[in-house]
Design a protein around this nucleic acid. Structure first.
Lengths: 364, 364
DNA sequence: TTGTACGCGTTATCAA
DNA sequence: TTGATAACGCGTACAA
């Protein structure tokens, strides 16, 4: 007879019913320490009868472990972050861990607030896509305070924490090179390039040319621009600043407008490289509305893979990021840290794959 | 570096430094009770100096409130769930609540496990898309146990809990009617129709016809089929079972194959209604590969709105679900419950909008 | 206005 | 193998 007395049944009541001490009941139910078979049976039966469920808060208070991972994503609504989160959640679930989620919207203030909340909730570790690769004292503090951190997608300069990234620079360089190899000389790039305080695009290019810049802690889109520049340099092709479409806001509309601008240049580019999925979407929108034919009038390669790129016209050759694998890897690194690993910070770089779908041909 | 300066600074140490009791320190830092300005200053200064952060576990253990909401989504990787989660997270963050996320993959066993974990972690409430509208005793138990529940997308039969849904049946009926009004008589539907144990499609149709079925606790795709049938009935058009494309698995490939099948029927349909975003994607894939022209050779309306439907050819007229609003609403209902509202269960039905994009015309 | 003392539900430390 | 008892960090009576 299922009664409605499902109130709070604690280990005390289980122990009482089983006729043992709370310590013994705890040992049986928590799976630590010894207990005779006889007593194990009694305690388990009592727990079952009362519908006992452990209070993980109390356990966490004493063990100092909550078996919860805090995640700071940029925007969980985006395919990129939601796939990463899926990877994290899968690994966490398999190990009996919970996942506490927050969005930063790539705003430092919000990330700070999020980290604060997660730490106060005593998460065992933080998986985070840092907003700012320099001003991240809150992450340093967390780390010093004993909270392991795994970064993904980008890395904070000098933060001694694990990280999972991809080689954006190399993939970009190879993508551009393949366009150059196909005969293209005027290749445009469309990228969201907001966060870099050390000067404008020209100075960035100058520093890439002078090899005086460390790409590891750049934001992905800057790394992709890095590869774009490198590919031109090594092919001996002059860079045309007009072909670098810098999108200020991370919005589809902004990307679309910038793409329109590029495609209406007097000396129109014959190739286009988009630095992420949103840029690709904006570009394709513009391309479709202008009636530009892919690949006859324009060759194209995009970073990130979205489902429609494979089944709609024009199909877009894309650099595919192993997104769920990134999440899984991040979670695994985190679990190892939580388990006590004190190895030096590890940096896992996952492989990128170019999926060719026929959006590249020789220039007209 | 690599020091063990992991001293958790507790309220005791703050009180010590400030020269007051822990109770006073708690009153100041927790913002409850009285304290003189003089002491407030001292305590706050001490807390600041030591870098004190409250341990929310301990607080939760006492107050019985964790300020955390548990969410059981189907698959966070899908645009639908990730948008809902975004809405939930936004409202939660604004109120200082955390969000614990789990995926059920629409599997009852996994949902059970997830609810279990969330309850043990003492979440203040559960926002869930129930896998099974009948066998949900775990939800009933949670509710009885005092844990508020807000359902979204679907509703468990007889569960006295708040819910946020949309009127799938009506929107579907109107969409089909608009196709009928345009002159179509052979309208196919493509839907994932797995979860309904009360018989096969024919018996479902029979029961709809006989008005002997309650649509509220049907799964959305069945509600959409419901509207499809109703629209035919009220227009006096005979149903052709061959036009009901039942997709077994929730996969793009399965949808594509079923769409190909429908489009290759000897007496090909002139209209197509897809019951969700994935079905639309599969259908468009098939349509593109067959070279079928939209809307000249086929008129089409789809449930759910994905970005590519608006900027790629063919553009698809779509029933747009207010996804983030659903999440926000669910979170608000939850917060009201947590705040103590004990009103009878509320069922919020959000409005659906038909966004016309020219994929509907008269039949050839 | 402030301090004392107890309790939240569990695990850890002993001694028995 | 078991059981008192003390933590864990904080909120909340109640007394001062």
């Amino acid at each position: 007879m299922a009664e409605k007395r499902t109130d709070k049944v604690t280990i005390t009541e289980v122990a009482l019913l089983a006729g043992v001490s709370t310590a013994t009941a705890g040992r049986v139910l928590g799976g630590y320490g010894y207990a005779s078979e006889e007593i194990k049976k009694r305690v388990k039966a009592s727990a079952e009868r009362l519908g006992y469920r452990p209070n993980l808060l109390a356990r966490g208070l004493i063990t100092g472990k909550t078996r919860t991972i805090g995640v700071v994503a940029g925007d969980i609504q985006s395919p990129f972050y939601s796939s990463i989160l899926r990877g994290i959640a899968d690994v966490a679930r398999a190990e009996g861990f919970g996942v506490l989620l927050t969005n930063s919207d790539e705003l430092l203030a919000r990330e700070l607030e999020a980290v604060q909340l997660l730490l106060e909730k005593q998460v065992d570790g933080l998986i985070v896509a840092p907003c700012d690769t320099e001003r991240s004292d809150h992450l340093r503090r967390a780390l010093k305070g004993g909270c392991p951190i795994v970064q993904f997608d980008r890395m904070v300069k000098g933060l001694g924490a694990d990280a999972v990234t991809v080689d954006n620079r190399k993939a970009s360089r190879e993508a551009i090179s393949s366009l150059i190899d196909a005969g293209h000389r005027r290749i445009a790039i469309l990228a969201e390039l907001e966060r870099w305080d050390s000067g404008d695009i020209s100075s960035f290019i100058a520093r890439v040319t002078a090899r005086s810049i460390e790409p590891t802690t750049l934001f992905p889109s800057w790394q992709r621009l890095f590869g774009y520049v490198e590919a031109h340099l090594s092919a001996g092709i002059d860079l045309d600043r007009a072909l670098i479409g810098r999108v200020g806001a991370y919005s589809l509309e902004a990307a679309r407008l910038q793409a329109l601008h590029l495609l209406r240049l007097p000396d129109r580019p014959t190739g286009l490289f988009t630095a992420d999925g949103l840029m690709t979407a904006g570009a394709v929108d513009a391309i479709t509305s202008l009636g530009v034919q892919i690949p006859d009038q324009l060759s194209m390669i995009g970073f990130d893979d979205l489902d429609w790129m494979s089944f709609l016209k024009p199909q877009i050759t894309a650099v595919v990021q192993p997104v769920t694998a990134m999440g899984q890897t991040a979670a695994r690194l985190m679990l190892e840290r939580i388990a006590g690993s004190d190895s030096p910070p590890r940096h896992v770089t996952l492989e990128l794959a170019l999926t060719r779908r026929g959006s590249v041909s020789k220039p007209a």
